[in-house]
Design a protein around this nucleic acid. Sequence first.
DNA 1: CAATGTCATGACACCGGTGTCATGTCAACT
DNA 2: AGTTGACATGACACCGGTGTCATGACATTG
Lengths: 363, 363
Amino acid sequence: MATIYDVAKRAGVSPKTVSRVLNGDAPVSKKTRSSVAAAMDALGYVPSLAARSIKSQKSGLIGLITGAISTVNEVVTAGGLPELFIVQGVQHVMANSGKTLLIADTAGQQERVPTLIRTFREHRVEGLLYVADFHKKIALPLPIDGVQTVLANCYDDFGTPSVLPDDEAGQLALTREVIAQGHRRIGYLTLASGHEATRLRLSGFKTALAEAGLVYDPDLTIAVDMFGTHGEHQLIWDALDRILTNDDVPTAICCGNDRLAMAVYGILRDRGVGIPEQMSVAGYDDHRTISEALFPALTTAELPYNAIGARAAQLLLGMIENPATASITAPIHVSGRVQKRGSVTRPRRDASVVINLKGRTTS
Amino acid sequence: MATIYDVAKRAGVSPKTVSRVLNGDAPVSKKTRSSVAAAMDALGYVPSLAARSIKSQKSGLIGLITGAISTVNEVVTAGGLPELFIVQGVQHVMANSGKTLLIADTAGQQERVPTLIRTFREHRVEGLLYVADFHKKIALPLPIDGVQTVLANCYDDFGTPSVLPDDEAGQLALTREVIAQGHRRIGYLTLASGHEATRLRLSGFKTALAEAGLVYDPDLTIAVDMFGTHGEHQLIWDALDRILTNDDVPTAICCGNDRLAMAVYGILRDRGVGIPEQMSVAGYDDHRTISEALFPALTTAELPYNAIGARAAQLLLGMIENPATASITAPIHVSGRVQKRGSVTRPRRDASVVINLKGRTTS
DNA sequence: CAATGTCATGACACCGGTGTCATGTCAACT
DNA sequence: AGTTGACATGACACCGGTGTCATGACATTG
């Protein structure tokens, strides 16, 4: 690999002059500039950031850790890893800021985290981003001295700056939309009750009901724990059975996420319940691979992963540029839009057909 | 940030001795070792890889580019980006090899690629990985001199080493399974016909049919172009309509991917066709968020993304270690497993109910 | 014409590590 | 006792850039 000295020699100038041409930080005569450019070109010269950074003390690197970072309570989902979208949001911002991302995935082995951080520090990263796979509380393995840190999709007890989805507002807005369509009784299949998101969304759900003067019926809210595939369908089947056999059958069901809604589509139809004619269904996440492809397309609340990533990146960059900003702040909440598609429509009067179908079981 | 000189001063030794303690590459007395260790500890010293690498000429960095890398023919899908799994496969291998990944996402802007490569070269990456979002042919923007390169999920015309999914073998194995269940007439909804994968899988499909002595009926193979959501369902609806109104209605349908299968579930059921009682459905990809959650769970062929990533990483590491290996090789094909779940079962004799339902249209 | 200022460029040290070689100490061996 | 060699350590240069300061050539001004 050619060095600045090679270029200098070939162009018949000093290395420092080549440096000046490279950075344009001091006047260089036209003639010299072009001969230096020619030499760089001929040699395929690319300056070394390593050399540069030992002098400047700036690496231009940002470290990002994804994957299972020490979860506080042991709720684990083999989720759909949409954290990728967070990472993309981060990358987009970073690309425009001239920083380069160093990414490490723990692949669930949190004991690796200290090693990764060590590697990042050896690379002299200017900032650190933790990206969690779902909204949760974490405990940083080490207090990271000197390196600015931002948490995305997670938070801790020590006031580390963090960016979170506004799950409460999301479910609130979505439920409002369902109610606006005329539904008065709404079932709710939540994710595992231990999740942070579940608690917040349920709160939003209740608020929407209260706003509209509707009563919240605990019998219609059922938590579905989704650990892997085994028995998952049976759980959902049972939950739906309880809802469908209720004395006053709801006309709409909200689901903890799009994936759950997808399963609900199948089970409801398998029981002869038409969607959305007999039952409106709403999701959460707006995981577009699912929500757009489902038939009918799914009305759902966006989990603004991309925006969360972007926001976290901006926050971090701000903290790096002006460390004073790094004062302990409350988490930043990012809210997503309600995506109205075809699965939530006005309820039909004769939805009672539903009741006839109770009693079947999955094979 | 503390330097090796700070540590040396505090421990009362020369920097070189600290270096020896750090690397364990020369004998150091026990006493010295412990006092140096104490000093490093007290100062929170972490060696600088930048300084190290200018001397050693080894960065320990591998560059990875994801996203829309200059596609040759302009078929574009806003796909589900399962390329993430390829990246995970890569990371897993890299983590165990001591290299660190530098990742850049073009976010669809291929004009950025040259800039990214430039940045990577400034970081003196030892190898470069291109990861495409789906099996395709690409044209590298530049011949990358000096930096070993491997293509994952894509290939080019210049014999750059590449790792690809074995789409033909995958569809072959999957179709064999469908046939083994007793199906004799099988519909096939393929992805856009311009895709590499479509061609290969169709070939595997035909081979399986031929092996079993079944005739391939072109009327039952329909390409579904999936550009975004608009009109997509109508296309699928029409395609299914053609299949369901065929004189000899098939008992099973293979789909170009799991996402398509998901839409097919909805549309078939909406037309009153039970799954799998009246129609078996198979997917492709084994995108587990979909395939496991669908009801019934989807029988599908695995697109071994993780393995592709791992294989590509291994190949690259081998090329770096022993550049002689870098001779132009044929693409490496990685095949995936057939995941037998609940959506393909033995066909029922009285599947004729299907025919009655033609004629409805989507709203 | 001398004094002054601007422009273009180079010499040199330094950033934080490591390879090479030299030096000093002490135990073992003839 | 003198020689030899293993062991422990340090001095120094070098990797590839950049900041600082000095220098020389001209043009401008009084």
